[in-house]
Design a protein around this nucleic acid. Structure first.
Length: 427
RNA sequence: AGAGAAAUGGCAGAGUGGUCGAAUGCACUGGUCUUGAAAACCAGCGUACCGUGAGGUACCGGGGGUUCGAAUCCCUCUUUCUCUGCCA
């Protein structure tokens, strides 16, 4: 969430930035947050004053008791008891205001970075670059949902039997290709200086709040209700939360982590004609990059992460394009997001395979993830910036490899994967 | 899963109703001394919020309660440790 002090100091700027998202409640919510905060301040002031008085009386009673002045002590007691209820009421009011403020702030999305253009949705995204030639396929080329049947490598019907729609079973070379991709992506991340972690794939509520999945987006997550845990929608959640409530040293930056996890998404209501096959699943695998960075270097870090992902796609020889999302298409918590899409030749469409974002302090403010400046005269703890990016999500990469590399003899495996797969084609 | 014990500042560790935001040691920062370092000595050293400021308030695992007053008493939750059980 945004910092209330920042909103107070830069109200117009915040409202203006939020307009880029076409966020209609911007002015209303910002005004509301400010007025709650102002009331909070005055409430705390008067509460503190009363508490100071009460503390003084309580102390004096202690002194009087020790001096044996019982009567005076009892008089003071009565006096103190009078203010008790007032203090209690003010305390309750303060708590309520604080929680109102937090709830209000939860509803305000992150303010887009200066480079982000205004826009309502996907059509307004900026296409920054395109790489690679679009392959021309034979006339009888098949979309991946037919190829997986032809070669018997991914089975949706079996998944339906075991679990339900959107939970495919990978078999034989399909399973091995998955494993190869995971290992390849992890090795590349490690080579780029990311520290591999294997986090839990169930998270508690606090973690959900930390990275912004909660409140409001619980409908997107599978929930283990008996234990009040959630299946992760992305490794971003457990990995970023490793640093919840931590104070790091400035010299620790950048903190770079990577991890492979399955991801679980309910995707309620988002099924339609163009989500056949591997295009949208309830469970899929992803290798994620997470970075925690100094505020002054976070955009540099974002570029660095973007070029890492581009390098992967180039090594896999998949034509891609880079989009900078417009305000309206960005996730709630992001300040700037690059999407990478690969061209799926048999479907004739671009498929999003990675999303790389800078959250600035939006997540770290909830996480209370701060750093201590190296400058010893600066005693204050400062919020760090958090970033993450997929590198990469598997299913659409698999779909595109299958479609783009199909030949009459079989599906050619990209060179970089051959050692990982230990086979060169699927036939 | 059952029984017991525990949770205090960066760490260790005192404190069982009142000058306790919290002894002491270590660590850390600054200084004295030294050619330099070590040692010794002196001083400082938690976080957040409110206040222009002086200053105030809250925080001793989380939440609630008793009391004029709670680190200290009560309830509850969480976590850790020990023993027993179970298990890859």
């Amino acid at each position: 969430m945004l910092q209330i002090a920042h909103i107070q100091a830069h109200k117009e700027e915040v409202i203006e930035a939020l307009q880029k998202r076409h966020f209609s409640k911007a002015t209303e919510l910002v005004e509301n947050a400010i007025s709650i905060d102002n009331e909070r301040k005055t409430t705390q002031s008067s509460l503190n004053e009363l508490q100071a008085g009460a503390n003084e009386v309580a102390k004096s009673i202690g002194v009087l008791m020790r001096q044996g002045k019982k009567e005076e002590a009892n008089q003071a007691k009565e006096k103190a008891a009078q203010n008790k209820q007032t203090i209690k009421n003010l305390e309750d009011k303060l708590k309520e205001l604080e929680s109102d403020l937090t709830n209000c702030l939860y509803e305000i999305p992150n303010t887009p970075y200066k480079d982000v253009v205004a826009g309502k949705g996907a059509d307004d995204n900026q296409i920054l670059e395109e790489w690679g030639a679009i392959p021309t396929l034979a006339d009888d080329a098949m979309p991946h949902w037919e190829l997986i049947k032809k070669y018997d490598i991914i089975d949706f019907e079996l998944g339906v039997k075991i679990t339900g729609a959107g939970f495919p079973v990978y078999k034989g070379k399909g399973a091995r290709l998955q494993r190869a991709l995971i290992n390849y992506f992890l090795d590349e991340a490690i080579a780029a200086g990311y520290n591999e972690v294997q986090p839990p794939i169930l998270i508690n509520e606090a973690s959900g709040y930390g990275t912004g999945q909660l409140p409001d987006k619980e409908g997107q997550m599978y929930e283990a209700t008996a234990d009040n845990l959630f299946l992760i929608p992305t490794a971003e959640v457990p990995i970023t939360n490793l640093y919840r409530d931590e104070i790091v040293k400035e010299s620790d930056f950048p903190i770079k982590m990577t991890g492979h996890t399955p991801c679980f998404r309910r995707e309620a209501g988002s099924w339609g004609a163009d989500v056949r096959g591997l295009n949208r699943l309830h469970q899929f695998d992803k290798v994620e990059l997470v970075a925690i960075e100094h505020p002054e270097k976070s955009y540099q870090r974002l570029e660095n992460m973007l070029s890492h992902v581009k390098g992967l796609l180039e090594a896999l020889e998949l034509p891609y394009r880079v989009l900078r999302l417009c305000g309206g298409d960005m996730g709630f918590t992001a300040a700037m997001t690059y999407d990478l899409e690969v061209y799926s030749a048999a479907q004739g469409r671009w498929l999003e395979v990675s999303s790389v974002s800078n959250f600035e302090t939006y997540q770290s403010n909830r996480l209370q993830l701060r750093y201590q400046s190296q400058d010893t005269s600066d005693k204050k703890k400062h919020l760090a910036h958090t970033l993450n990016g997929s590198a990469l999500a598997l299913p659409r990469i698999v779909a595109t490899i299958l479609e783009n590399n199909q030949t009459k003899d079989g599906i050619k495996i990209p060179k970089v994967l051959q050692d990982y797969c230990r086979f060169e084609q699927i036939d």
